[in-house]
Amino acid sequence: MKINLMIFISSAIEQEKSISMMKTFEYDIRPVKGDIMDDPGFHNGYEVVKVSINYASNECFVSLHPLASEIEEIKMETYIEKLEAHSWHVVSKEELNSM
């Protein structure tokens, strides 16, 4: 099954600065709400807050707990760069609306 991990990153300091990122991979076990997902790109593990399954396309969309960069004490730009270095990519609002 294709698993699409999604995380929403925002900054209270940088008003109107928010971004959605996604990482996709194949996996036989699907996450469930409450699981803690770990990834080399993460500063910490993140809790799964929502799982949506599309059996027709054999894919699963997994929403992770949103990240407020000030809470993690890491600059938003630095965190995004770290995620991108580990196969995460920015998802546009148009792409989000089509999912």
Results as ranks from 00 to 15, higher is better:
Phe25Trp: 04
Ser18Asp: 12
Gly41Lys: 01
Ser18Gln: 10
Gly34Met: 13
Ile19Lys: 01
Met6Asn: 14
Phe25Thr: 06
Asn4Ala: 02
Ile7Ser: 02
Ile36Leu: 15
Gln15Tyr: 14
Phe25Asn: 03
Asp38Val: 08
Glu26Arg: 09
Ser18Tyr: 08
Ser18Cys: 05
Val32Glu: 14
Ser11Cys: 14
Asn44Gln: 13
Ile9Arg: 01
Lys23Ser: 15
Ile7Met: 10
Ile3Cys: 14
Ser20Trp: 02
Lys17Arg: 14
Lys17Trp: 13
Gln15Gly: 07
Ile7Asp: 00
Asp39Tyr: 05
Glu16Lys: 15
Leu5Asp: 04
Ile7His: 03
Gln15Ala: 15
Ile19Cys: 12
Ser10His: 12
Leu5Glu: 09
Ser11Glu: 02
Phe25Gly: 02
Ala12Asn: 09
Phe8Lys: 00
Ile36Trp: 11
Lys23Arg: 15
Glu14His: 12
Asn44Met: 11
Lys23Tyr: 11
Met21Trp: 00
Ala12Met: 14
Ala12Lys: 15
Phe25Ala: 05
Lys23Ile: 04
Thr24Glu: 13
Met6Thr: 05
Ser20Asp: 04
Ile7Asn: 06
Ile36Asn: 15
Lys17Gly: 02
Ser20Cys: 08
Lys17Glu: 12
Ser20Thr: 12
Asn4Asp: 15
Gly34Asn: 07
Asp39Ile: 04
Asp38Ala: 09
Ser20Gln: 11
Pro31Leu: 12
Ser18His: 04
Gly34Phe: 11
Lys23Met: 08
Glu26Thr: 10
Ser18Leu: 08
Gly34Ile: 05
Asn4Pro: 03
Phe8Asp: 00
Ile36His: 12
Ile7Cys: 07
Asp38Ile: 09
Val32Gln: 06
Lys33Trp: 04
Gly34Pro: 02
Asn4Glu: 11
Ile19Asn: 01
Phe8Pro: 00
His43Cys: 11
Gly34Asp: 10
Asn4Lys: 07
Ile9Pro: 02
Ile29Gln: 09
Asn4Tyr: 07
Gly45Trp: 08
Met37Trp: 09
Glu14Arg: 10
Ile3Tyr: 05
Lys23Pro: 02
Ser18Val: 02
Phe42Arg: 00
Leu5Thr: 10
